[in-house]
Nucleic acid binder design. Sequence first.
DNA 1: AATGTTGATGAAAATCATTTTCATTAACAG
DNA 2: CTGTTAATGAAAATGATTTTCATCAACATT
Lengths: 157, 157
Amino acid sequence: MPRRDGTGPMWWHGRFRGCGYRITAGREAILDTLMIADKHLSAEDIYNKIHNAYPAVGLTTVYRTLEILVTMNLVFKFDFGDGRARYELVEGSKKSHHHHHLVCKECNRIIEYTDFINDEIELLKKTEKGLSKKYNFEIISHIIQFYGICEKCKKKR
Amino acid sequence: MPRRDGTGPMWWHGRFRGCGYRITAGREAILDTLMIADKHLSAEDIYNKIHNAYPAVGLTTVYRTLEILVTMNLVFKFDFGDGRARYELVEGSKKSHHHHHLVCKECNRIIEYTDFINDEIELLKKTEKGLSKKYNFEIISHIIQFYGICEKCKKKR
DNA sequence: AATGTTGATGAAAATCATTTTCATTAACAG
DNA sequence: CTGTTAATGAAAATGATTTTCATCAACATT
C-alpha cells in the first residue's frame, strides 16, 4: 500500500513504473520538492532546493523529469508571462486544492485564490461536459487566470 | 470621428497618440493585420503577412509594437505552450468576440469556442467583482483554457 | 547477489524566441 | 521648414529550454 511518510513506496511509484519509467533519486527529489512546496515553482527553483541534498542532480534532469510529469498529467505547467514556466502538482495528486491565479501585469506578483470556487467548479463541469461532447475533445485540465494591477502597484501610481 | 474604412483616422489613433506614441506605417500595418486576422497570430505570422506590402518593417518592430499594444490593453498575449506567443485584439477593440480556447496537448491544435459563454460571462463578472474587492486587485483581462486531447489525436491512438 | 539491457544522467553545446544595442531615420510640434 | 526625440533595422546578445553523447545505474533476469 502506497504511503507518503517515507516508510514505503510513494503514491506515484506505481504509475511511474507502469509507464515504463525508472525510479531514481533525482526524480524522487523532484517529486518530493513539488509535494512539500505545494506551490508553483520554476525548474530552477526546484534545482536550487534540491542541490544541497543532491548535488549530483543537474538542471537538465529537472527539466526532463518535469516534462515527463506534465505528460503524465501529474504536474501542471503554468505560464505567468515572465518568460519562465512554473510547475505545480495537479489538483488531486496530493495536498493541492482547487485554485486559480491573479497575475499582476506590472510586477508579476501571483496571487493564488480559492474564493468563489464552488460556483466556478459547477460551471466548469457543465462547460467541460458540453465542450467535450461538441468537439469530441477529451478535457484533462484547465486554466483560469485574471490579469490586472495588484494592490501595491496601484498605490505606487 | 474615427472610422475603419481607410478614409479617416483609425479608431486606435487617438488612444495611441494620447499615450505619446507616434503613428508609423509599420504600426498601422501591424494593427491592420490583427484586425483583418481577428485570430491569434504569432509575431512571425504578422511579420510574414506584412512583409510583401511593407518590406521595410522588421521583425523587431513587430515585437516592439506588440509589446506596446499589450501594455495598452489593446492586444492580448496568449501562451499555448508551444514556445511562441500568440496575439489577438482584445475583445471590444473591434470585431473580436468573447471566446476561449481548447488546447490539444498532443498536436497543439487550438480550437476557439464561443459556446456556453453566457453562464460563463455571468460567473466571470461575479468572480471579478469579488476578487477585485477582496484583494484590491484591478482586473483587466482573463484567460480560460482547457487542455486535453483533440478528436484527431484520439483517433490516432 | 551477479549481470546484461536499456533507460537516465550531467556537462557542454545547440536552439530559438525574444530583447537589446546602436547608429540612422522619420514623426510631428512649433 | 526645422529641431527634437521617438522609432527603426540589422546584428548581437540574452536566457530559458532542448539536444547531444559518452557514461552511469535501475531493475528484470538469471
